[in-house]
Structures are given as structure tokens and as C-alpha cells.
């Protein structure tokens, strides 16, 4: 009975997080491509899109905190380990990438998108490894 409630909370938390993430990604796409393709560089619309994106981002963070709060202690440990690894890889990898740009080792500018991809991939790999380790 206890776990039924816990499972329901987890499913609800996961759906909530997925919804906020979807809204954040969609609003990010709108804020990024809207000025060029939808409102012809109109500043008011751009500010509105950015504010909306930031608000959805805050909602996503809140949903993530709520999601983490319903996990049990092992699941929290797996998440914490994965987040720690992703943060470490992000900081070290991001700064190394930035230095390659400053030192002109790479021809193009360092893009923040690569850092987001690096953090996301390292988080997902660490999560899978963690789940497998305790399986």
C-alpha cells in the first residue's frame, strides 16, 4: 500500500518533469528561432519569448526537485552520482573546450550548445552505469 502511493507519486513526478521539460525545450526553440522566422526581430516579442522560456525553466527546476524528493535512498544516490559526474565533466570539459578556443586550437568559436550536449550525455551514461551497478 505504501509503495503504491510512492509509485503513483513517482509516476506523477516523472510526468510533471517531462511536461515542464517539453515546455522549456519548446519555448527555447521559440525564443531561438522566433526572431528570425516568426516576428521579424521584434524586440518586444523576443523579450516575451525569453521571459516565457526562463519561467518554464524555473518550472522545470521545481519539477526536478519534486521528482527527486519522491525517490528512495538508492535512487537518490544514483541520481546524485550521475549529477556529480555530469557537473564534473561539464566544468572540466567546458573549460578545456573554452581554452581550445582561446588558444585558437579550434577554428570555430566555442558554442554553449556543445557543453549542454556534453553534460546531457555524461549524465545519461552515468545514470545507466549507476542503474546497472545496483541491479
Amino acid at each position: 500500500m505504501k509503495n503504491e502511493n510512492k509509485n503513483k507519486q513517482m509516476i506523477k513526478g516523472t510526468k510533471n518533469l517531462a511536461l515542464w521539460t517539453l515546455l522549456w525545450v519548446a519555448s527555447l526553440a521559440l525564443a531561438s528561432f522566433g526572431p528570425k522566422f516568426l516576428w521579424n526581430e521584434n524586440t518586444t516579442w523576443s523579450i516575451l519569448a525569453i521571459v516565457t522560456n526562463t519561467a518554464f525553466g524555473a518550472g522545470m527546476i521545481w519539477a526536478n526537485i519534486r521528482y527527486l524528493s519522491v525517490l528512495d535512498e538508492l535512487q537518490k544516490k544514483i541520481q546524485l552520482d550521475a549529477m556529480g559526474i555530469a557537473l564534473g565533466v561539464g566544468v572540466v570539459g567546458g573549460l578545456s573546450y573554452s581554452v581550445t578556443d582561446i588558444a585558437n586550437v579550434i577554428s570555430s568559436d566555442a558554442e554553449i550548445g556543445f557543453l549542454v550536449i556534453l553534460i546531457s550525455i555524461s549524465y545519461m551514461i552515468a545514470l545507466l552505469v549507476g542503474k546497472k551497478r545496483y541491479a
Partner: peptide
């Protein structure tokens, strides 16, 4: 057991 302790089955197994 997981149900009684309100944890996941994976936690009990681990």
C-alpha cells in the same frame, strides 16, 4: 518487502 518499506525492489535487491 519493498512494498512494506516503501522503497523500490531494486533497493531491496542491492
Amino acid at each position: 518487502l519493498a512494498d512494506s518499506l516503501a522503497v523500490s525492489r531494486q533497493t531491496i535487491n542491492a
